[in-house]
């Protein structure tokens, strides 16, 4: 498949939900019929509010959530991995190649392990290295790349600040030499001055180690800054997708427009230009039929108000896809 590293084809993820043990089982449609291609070496951004399904999609691509329908293909150099149809051996191999960086660096690191042990654990678990010496070498190597001092390795996580802890998490994710990284809200818990540092580090590591990222975030200004391609999610659907500059300069979907206008502007003279969205994101148990955004849409068309228009992306400009309800 040429330049793509990941192909997500018609993927849906449903969860079973039962309010209490006598009530009927229901389905939560967390992710619906998603198609994305992530190119090698790209910084792919996934934005949306809480409850939009971005984390579920990220985890599904890593094989951490069960995919209900559709498939995910990981195009490695020699062979393709089909995530929906993998045996244990393949899954083990895949784990080495795709890793996750978590949101909260305070919860992600075991307080009882030294930094060296934390970073070395993936190597030991996946049996990548054969001797302690080799493990140590790789740990030191990746720690240096993530700008951690060698003497830090002997300490425990409590001795570190949020930014340093996030660097430890990054080192742990990268030590197995993966090709694909899912960074799930990896800078959300950090102060702005530190956030900039971690974003720069991720960028630098990308070129150094040939990484491909899926960067999940709710912060549009961060995504606009670091990502090449962005997909905007709402209630389990991608409503708009395209090269990030193009998408942010010329958003087509009314949800993207509203999101962009909601970012509080740093200029005190530009107050309250936000397109205010009424209400909140509906429950994924009972998504509105047709366009999922129509219940909050500030300017719905006559057709989509009734829910007659089905969800589906159309290409409005080369590479820029918008849900057909808003593209019309």
């Amino acid at each position: 498949m040429g330049n793509n590293l990941i192909s997500v084809n018609n993927v849906s993820v449903n969860f079973d939900y039962q309010e209490n043990f006598i009530s009927k089982k229901q389905k939560i449609h967390a992710v619906n019929n998603i198609n994305i291609k992530i190119q090698k070496g790209s910084f792919f951004g996934l934005v949306g509010e809480s409850g939009s399904g971005k984390t579920t999609l990220g985890r599904a691509i890593l094989g951490a959530n069960k995919i209900s329908s559709g498939n995910v293909i990981f195009h490695d150099d020699e062979r393709d991995y089909d995530l929906t149809n993998m045996n244990k051996q393949d899954l083990k191999e895949y784990r080495k190649k795709a890793q996750l960086i978590f949101q909260d660096p305070y919860a992600a690191l075991s307080p009882r392990m030294t930094v060296r042990d934390i970073i070395a654990e993936p190597l030991e678990v996946m049996k990548i290295t054969n001797s302690r010496q080799e493990t140590d070498e790789r740990v030191r190597d990746i720690a240096a790349k993530c700008r951690l001092n060698i003497e830090h390795l002997r300490r425990f996580p409590h001795a570190f600040s949020g930014g340093q802890r996030q660097r430890i998490s990054i080192a742990r994710a990268l030590v197995s030499n993966p090709k694909f990284i899912v960074a799930d809200e990896s800078v959300a818990a950090l102060d702005v001055s530190i956030q900039a540092d971690i974003l720069n580090l991720l960028k630098q590591l990308q070129t150094e180690l040939n990484l491909t990222y899926l960067f999940i975030s709710h912060d549009l200004s961060v995504v606009a800054h670091v990502c090449d391609v962005v997909a905007v999610m709402y209630l389990g659907h991608i409503v708009e997708m395209g090269p990030s500059r193009q998408l942010f300069k010329n958003p087509k979907h009314s949800y993207t427009k509203a999101l962009l206008s909601s970012i509080p502007s740093i200029d005190p003279e530009k107050r309250s230009e936000a397109i205010e969205l009424k209400g909140e994101i509906p429950s994924a148990l009972h998504p509105p039929p047709g366009c999922v955004f129509r219940t909050r849409c500030p300017n719905p068309g006559i057709d989509c108000k009734g829910g007659e228009i089905k969800m589906g992306l159309t290409e409005v400009e080369p590479g820029h896809w918008v849900d057909q309800c808003c593209a019309l």
Binding site: S161, G163, Q164, V192, S193, I194, Q195, A196, D197, L199, N200, D219, L220, S221, V222, A224, H225, R245, F248, L260, I263, I266
Partner: peptide, 18 residues
Amino acid sequence: ALPDINNLDAPLSPIPGN
């Protein structure tokens, strides 16, 4: 250090240290 959506070409410069 603040990413500004209206000025995407500006580099993000962190405040050094902790």
